[in-house]
Nucleic acid binder design. Structure first.
Lengths: 109, 109
DNA sequence: ACCTATCCATAGGAAATCTATGGTTGTGGC
DNA sequence: GCCACAACCATAGATTTCCTATGGATAGGT
């Protein structure tokens, strides 16, 4: 029944890292940011987001600390580490290479 | 340990359909074609390819028949159906939309 | 005789995502 | 005061997709 995916599998980590490269942010804010920047095309479900953030923490690509939001709420803010920045660069490179390769397959010739 | 993927997850069906849209082909030939067109960036493992072809058959997007190769071998040739052609169009549209959206998230601004 | 390339296919496991839940806490409307 | 809703976090379970590993058959070249 061909379910429409919310995003391209394998790109979530990259999107999160990229978002955090602009500014530290909490989970909910990351989801909103990606949705907004993609003009509502990409939706990051919470059930995908939080496990992804756990992975990124484990890999040491982000670090987290509890803080208060401007709206007076407890929230966990994530910050990109140096390793995370390297990883982002790596993923960007590979992604672009993949996209270029797929483009070659898709082009009519 | 960041394993380098052979292709972008979620794009295999589209790549197969696109390849078959050019000409009917057998499995092994599809894999070679994708590898060649992508200039060796994308590799379709046989363990991914044949299950994918079964899925496509089940969905009615391709049909298959046994024939002889130019090299005198038994091989199963797959042909795109009308439904498969529609599906390919759909996947292409969604893919491009996704890529554009990801591009917006990745761009610096 | 052997090796390699050509060809098909499945089983089992790993990884990523979604659905479904469940919970806490501010704020604004009534 | 109460209720609905938005803002936040998180996990469990199912599903899907892909990879690794395996097994098999056959043609052609050396």
């Amino acid at each position: 029944m061909a379910k429409r995916p919310d995003l391209l599998p394998g790109t979530l980590d990259m999107l999160i890292l990229k978002t955090l490269s602009r500014a530290p942010m909490h989970g909910y804010g990351i989801a909103l940011s990606i949705k907004r920047q993609s003009e509502d095309v990409l939706t990051v479900e919470e059930g995908s987001l939080y496990p992804a953030l756990q992975r990124l923490l484990l890999q040491g690509w982000v670090k987290a600390e509890w803080k208060m939001t401007e709206t007076k709420r407890r929230a966990r803010f994530y910050t990109l580490t140096a390793a995370g920045r390297r990883q982002l660069g790596l993923e960007l490179t590979q992604f672009e290479q993949m996209i270029a390769a797929i483009g070659r397959v898709l082009q009519d010739a």
